[in-house]
Design a protein around this nucleic acid. Sequence first.
RNA 1: GCGGGUGUGGCGGAACCGGUAGACGCGACGGACUCAAAAUCCGUUUCUGGUGACAGAGUGUCGGUUCGAGUCCGACCACCCGCACCA
Length: 874
Amino acid sequence: MSTDRYNARDAEPRWQAIWNERGIFRTRNDDPRPKFFVMEMFPYPSGRIHIGHGRNYVMGDVLARYKRMQGFNVLHPMGWDAFGLPAENAAIERGIHPKSWTYENIASMKEQLQLLGLSLDWNREIATCDPSYYVEQQRIFLDFLEKGLAYRKESEVNWDPVDNTVLANEQVIDGRGWRSGAVVERRKLSQWFFRITAFAQELLDALDTLDRWPDKVRLMQRNWIGRSEGLEVLFELSKGAVAAAGVPAVKVYTTRPDTLFGASFLALSPDHPLTQHLAATRPELAAFVADCKTGGTSAEAIETQEKKGFDTGLTVVHPLDPARTVPVYVANFVLMDYGTGAIFGCPAHDQRDLDFARKYGLTVTPVVLPPGADPAAFAVGEEAYDGEGTLYNSQFLDGLSIEAAKEQVARRLERFRVGEQPQGMRKVNFRLRDWGISRQRYWGCPIPIIHCPSCGPVPVPRDQLPVQLPDDVTFDRPGNPLDRAKAWRDVPCPKCGAPAKRETDTMDTFVDSSWYYLRYASDTVERPLDKAAVAHWLPVDQYIGGIEHAILHLLYSRFFTRALKACDRVNVAEPFAGLFTQGMIVHETYKDQEGRWLFPEEVKHLGTGKAVKIDTGEEVVVGPPEKMSKSKRNVVPPEVVADTYGVDTARWFMLSDTPPERDSEWTQSGIEGAWRFVQRVWRQVQEAIELGAPKGAEKPASFDAAATALRRAAHGLSHQVADDVERLRFNVAVAHVHEFANAFGQAIAAARAAAQVPADLAFALREAAEIVTRVVGPMTPHLAEECWAALGHDTLLAEAAWPLAEPDLLVENTITLPIQINGKKRDDIVVPREATAAEVEAAVLAMDSVRKALDGKPPKRIIVVPQRIVNVVA
RNA sequence: GCGGGUGUGGCGGAACCGGUAGACGCGACGGACUCAAAAUCCGUUUCUGGUGACAGAGUGUCGGUUCGAGUCCGACCACCCGCACCA
């Protein structure tokens, strides 16, 4: 018996060097084979990576290697999402220039990634902070500008009044600036926007075509786009109020016109023109509006703040009942950029309106009666009723369903006139807002615009692109260094030549990641966005990344391809045909008695669930598994795993046990189990070489039961693992390989026990070794190369074909059916595969156990599900 | 606050379209090999009762549909993710 261990530390670098030398993962655009484009979401170069980062790259790599074996021309690229806030924070905190910080991180992360043995085409590597990348992004911006897909408008930012700087949402903590601690204000700035709303309907409709996306992601996008059909309704101001308001009517948007008779107030956004008009002469309202401006701009901050209102004293006339008037409030929860910036409140049927009405003592009139409720007794307490029902308390709507009432109200108000306008207008609204891309920061793609006092914003002429970031900047003061970079900023207007200033805002980093997959398609720097290459490679066949990008990144990318298509730059609308969202790797956390975080390598587990610090023996507090993070020290560096067990072990472990879409826990015992299995595969292949037939031996004419069982197991393995990998069920693929190894082990033991190995078994052993080596190839590629070479091949396994299963070996001739009596399993029966339901029924009724259960009586019912189950109802 | 998800043995999890719950692995226990150990191999391992054959219970909780529910429906509980300037 060969007792040699598989030496990963020797084999892994050796095979990686050979793959590199032969350039086998380099992809050519003119390769005639069918294409397969697989990519993982590119990383932000934050520093060192930990093993938690590796999971999605390994999953993508398994698929890439598998598809290569299936004969595809695979594109599997990698790049760096290299612009962003952390680089500037490093500059502020440690005085390192964002550029050198970023490129140093890229260098070390690249080294770590290469360690994982990923079959990437590094020739197509990109970094979004590189001018050769962002020059094209600036061209795209100008294309969008020409097509009206980019424009400028006012929009609010988080403003830190002490540091005099704009804050990101994550820099606002409990409504205060993270560095200054000052209460944050919302302040308006003129900013650039991409008109994603122009595609709102199309982005919504096309979700139905994305059948290889998770349903939950499509649902999240659908809700985010938030299409609603409603009615815009004009509320005329009461006679005495028109003068004060300066306008004859207020327009509100509602999706529930059926509840109009339940209206008890109108609420205006603090930013509504009428609010602004009134506040100009009423200091107490101005103060209320100013108060509404404190706190962050995030939806979470706005929606969780206390609901507050201000009674303007004005009233409006009810559109369907001129005898009634309704008070007008200003409320902090009404958003100016959704609908018309004004709503009517129907407290009985909307929880937020109800809370507001209770707080300010407004009437609550139910107008929708739940099915079966008594109209005399039904009342709304602390919970609004938003279910189905019948209209009442609503004059001409009484007795109608909600849908019918909506229709009646719309028809009637469309006929009414307020001045020249119809009082009601049907309107489709989207929750989706245009995408604000301006960032008041240095480390991002410069927006190629020059602001001229007389010509306004002027595009930078295309022959002057890229507008490169100046290197000579300082981070010693808060604010955007580009505002202070005079030599860079002050330029003549391209139109009139007068002194002008560059746009100092840079682009949102989501812009960078909205088209990088298109850049990968091109194999030349000269044409970073190459229409023909995009037509060849897109859509991405399989995109793999975290669920945290379910909405923004993926929606922005879907918008980008459409916008680029409108500019005639590409021909593809949907960028990602297949999407997979993988879970994170989590790890236990450890704290010593003083509450300091400890690294896993400082801790030793005792059998009892307790753990101690290795050097002191002090007991350690073991916390639940959490996302790996530097701050909690629950990280495992890939180098350490590679040095101790080898990369293939780490890859195998990452694919094992946990379904890939779920969070997976990294454990020491798990990695040791993976290491044992890697060794087991190696040993079994060695033994099969020793006991089996030589390479190229002739196939025997027949196989006995033992040899056939092994052949069934091996051929079944290749069939099942292919299916598992296609469906990205890597944990099940791993289980199938384990199952095979158990069968392989028995066959090897049988061969070893025989005086002389029979020819059919010898052939089957050899065949099994050849099959399992190729099947594990995508998952443990270095081990597989080593086995492949040991089997006598002088080709690379990475370039071998997937083993084709013989169909005859995949079907069983007999089937074991479970027998249930009254839904409980009581027995089994073995029947021929092609037995009819009637034959099965007869056989079942003849069984002792069934006869006993029936006790001489005929069964009430008997259900035979062919090839599945039999249920006898006694 | 709004939107989305997850929940199965001691642990990670499997179970296809409603059809044998617990595949496979980890851990634990027992055995073989060994002078011994490591490594390896074999066996047992959901819970309760029983020496045993076996019986009963069991997929977060409560209820429903069905011949049959981890799977479908309703209500609830716990935890996780996103919310437009983190990436």
